[in-house]
Design a protein around this nucleic acid. Structure first.
Lengths: 223, 223
DNA sequence: CATAGGAATGACCACCTGGTCATTTTCCCG
DNA sequence: CGGGAAAATGACCAGGTGGTCATTCCTATG
């Protein structure tokens, strides 16, 4: 199930890093199909055969990169999650938003690939890789919400799954806007970090209101 | 600025449709780069040269398709927008969600391409086409929100831009989930139309709560 | 110094891409 | 039927793709 040990493992670790970083950059910038092995080896100034000796195939290289990135990230993410302390729910949510934003900025490869995967059906290993990552994220949000309910800051009758969906959708779009002004709807998410954070907090606040308010229906309507 | 009149316009309208539909399908299924002219002409059983005589280039063909799709759609969308009548804000929003969902299902080409464009930086004409469409959508939501504020169903101090951003983000993700179970976070958005609509309404309701509740901050906090 | 074994190489392969254009076919009008 | 214009054709092109493998290079050990 894991990679069958190859030449690559014996390499000078410094060279390993150089290779992985360059390949990572290529995939992050172009996506899977548009990424070119020729271009990677060209920039690395190594022979094409070597890359194939290391990883077997383009898909193998990609899988290796993805797995490595996910592994590297897991620990810091857990730390954020577990450092929630005893803050109020809205503060926690804002903190998570801020951390995610910083994370996306610091790991353009993983974030870029993840974003592309969401929209592109024909990504290799899409189902496997996506469902791993997403399961983790959704559990995280659900737990956060349930904690909020326990504290009484989130309506008890709110469906955690729906709420988690909302959080993820908004966070996702906000992080995308951070890279690409076209998505930012004039909010300023893609400008300087300061206004960006203010915008993120505003978004989190509106969400929290939606989670906390006890009920709205102006007339006791149907349902 | 508009297309310089070509052989294509003189064709039997039935053939025109056949060609456009097949090309559309290819782009919708594969995205821009992975779409293959060879495959299109193969399925149509016409000569490759003909396609290039019609549209000049792959990009030309794509632009033609996109523009046509947007044109075809504009009218029905306007109709939905203007048929808002005098309903309450939450009902309006639910209606918009339902209409959008039906729309995405009925126009897989436009929706598929749009979704890909959002995530893929290297799409031809991305900036032009996207900003056109998005400007329209955001204005629409903003107007809807301002009407809600006028009716007193949306907090007056809510920033319409932020709210529009939230709506769009959630709607977008919900529609994506509709096609791809991987995104649907266990909600059931990708299953039968009935539960899907119920889920969409639940989402809209939480959003509305966030827009209406007069204020949350448990202590009169900073800011 | 000899040699064995892993690492590096790059010419080469089949295949596919978007695009071209001289040639042929089709169709309409006189 | 003849002729002219518009439409259709598909062999062909240069360039790129992922992938292969016989060969060479390097180095560590005896």
């Amino acid at each position: 199930m894991d990679s069958p040990r190859s030449t690559f493992d014996n390499l000078d670790p410094q060279k390993q890093r150089r290779v992985l970083d360059e390949a990572q950059r290529e995939f992050a910038e172009r996506g899977y199909h548009q990424a070119s092995i020729n271009r990677i080896v060209g920039r690395l100034d190594i022979a094409k055969g070597s890359l194939f000796q290391y990883f077997g195939s383009k898909e193998g290289l990609f899988a290796h990169l993805f797995r490595r990135a996910v592994d590297e990230i897991r620990a810091p993410l857990r730390a954020i999650r577990d450092a929630k302390g005893d803050e109020a729910f809205p503060e926690r949510l804002k903190r998570v938003f801020a951390a995610s934003s910083a994370f996306a900025a610091a790991h353009p490869f993983l974030w870029g690939i993840y974003r592309r995967m969401l929209a592109q059906e024909d990504f290799p290993l899409r189902a496997t890789l996506l469902s791993e990552v997403r399961a983790e994220a959704l559990t995280f949000f659900r737990e956060l919400l349930e904690a909020g309910q326990a504290q009484g800051e989130v309506r008890a009758d709110l469906d955690p799954a729906t709420a988690a969906f909302l959080i993820e959708a908004c966070l996702d779009r906000a992080l995308s806007a951070q890279d690409s002004p076209l998505l930012d709807a004039g909010l300023g998410l893609s400008s300087d970090p300061h206004t960006r954070q203010a915008r993120l907090e505003a978004i989190a606040e509106v969400l929290c209101r939606g989670f906390s308010a006890p009920g709205i229906a102006k007339g006791a309507a149907h349902e």
